[in-house]
């Protein structure tokens, strides 16, 4: 049994836990809406489009987070304006995504010698976070959570039934844009932890698992947060005692849990039937 107090012995680990915790809470919460709205691909695309912004910022000697945020928000607003029901929306998003990645490649080549920067963006750099980053993440995290709480009911309404919500006076297009803007900020935060390529593991996977256990929105949201926290904390802890990257452990924990839950589903279903039959008798 390794000495667990060692985990918090180094500043970089403390910062990683702090930032990881904030990001996991935000990602777990917003993930429910991403899954409910069928916007998983849009979330994935946001991070990739953000990659072009981040590498572009590096070329211009700016903080990559600024470029990342600018591009994810721009892309988020554009995707939100496309609306939730537009047929072929994913094709349009995919086309922009591919082009954005192409731009990212160009920017990396323009900035020779900084491949580590690109690597960190793609796969996360949570062990390289300083106090300033933690504070920035905290502020962004609080903003995204406050925004989510503020739009909670109409967002839920328009995610479930856009037509009825619109008839009841909910500004569905405005909400769609607003939600994607909030998601853009959440994605930008999460990129620090798992990187552009692995964003799915923190935003989509915990929520996708949670909705299989509860169809009560607040319960599903809390469960998603708990899972995102568990993956992040465990991933950090395991990585500390191993030579392998944190992102690998976080994504693997998320993936393994999802697979286990899906495989166990027929068994859970059978147990449910049996107990239902027992109460019926």
């Amino acid at each position: 049994m390794p000495d667990l107090t060692q985990l918090f012995h180094y500043d970089f680990m403390v910062h990683a836990f702090e930032a990881g915790t904030i990001v996991a809470i935000v990602a777990g919460a917003i993930g429910y809406f991403v899954v409910l709205r069928g916007s998983a691909f849009a979330a994935h695309a946001l991070s990739h489009i953000g990659f072009a912004g981040a590498t572009g910022a590096v070329v211009l000697a700016l903080n990559p987070i600024i470029g990342l945020l600018a591009f994810t928000i721009g892309a988020g607003v554009a995707i939100g304006a496309l609306g939730n029901r537009l047929r072929g929306r994913d094709v349009t998003i995919g086309i922009v995504l591919a082009w954005a990645l192409g731009l990212g490649v160009l920017f990396i080549s323009l900035y020779r010698g900084y491949a580590t920067e690109a690597y960190a963006l793609l796969f996360g750099q949570i062990l390289g976070i300083n106090t300033g980053d933690v504070v920035a993440t905290l502020v962004a995290g609080i903003l995204t959570l406050v925004a989510l709480v503020a739009v909670y009911r109409p967002l839920l309404f328009s995610s479930v039934d856009e037509d009825v919500a619109s008839a009841r006076g909910v500004p569905v297009t405005g909400l769609s844009i607003g939600f994607m803007a909030i998601l853009a900020v959440a994605v930008t935060e999460a990129v620090q932890v798992v990187g552009v390529l692995l964003i799915f593991a923190l935003i989509v996977t915990p929520a996708a698992i949670a909705i299989r256990f509860s169809s009560r929105p607040p319960v599903a949201i809390l469960l998603g947060i708990a899972l995102a926290l568990a993956f992040t904390w465990l991933g950090l802890a395991i990585a500390f005692y191993s030579p392998h990257p944190v992102s690998f452990f976080i994504t693997t924990l998320a993936f393994a849990t999802y697979v286990a839950v899906r495989l166990a589903e027929p068994i859970r279903e059978r147990l449910r039937r049996r107990s239902a039959a027992a109460t019926a008798v």
């Binding site: 429910y32 739009v151 909670y152 109409p154 009841r168 509860s214 599903a220």
Partner: peptide
């Protein structure tokens, strides 16, 4: 796959258009 109970959906008919929780 839409993860919401019938009951929660019906409740949105009362205050789903209001901001906040």
């Amino acid at each position: 796959e839409l993860s919401i109970r019938g009951r929660d959906f019906v409740g949105l008919g009362i205050d789903g258009h209001r901001w906040g929780v």
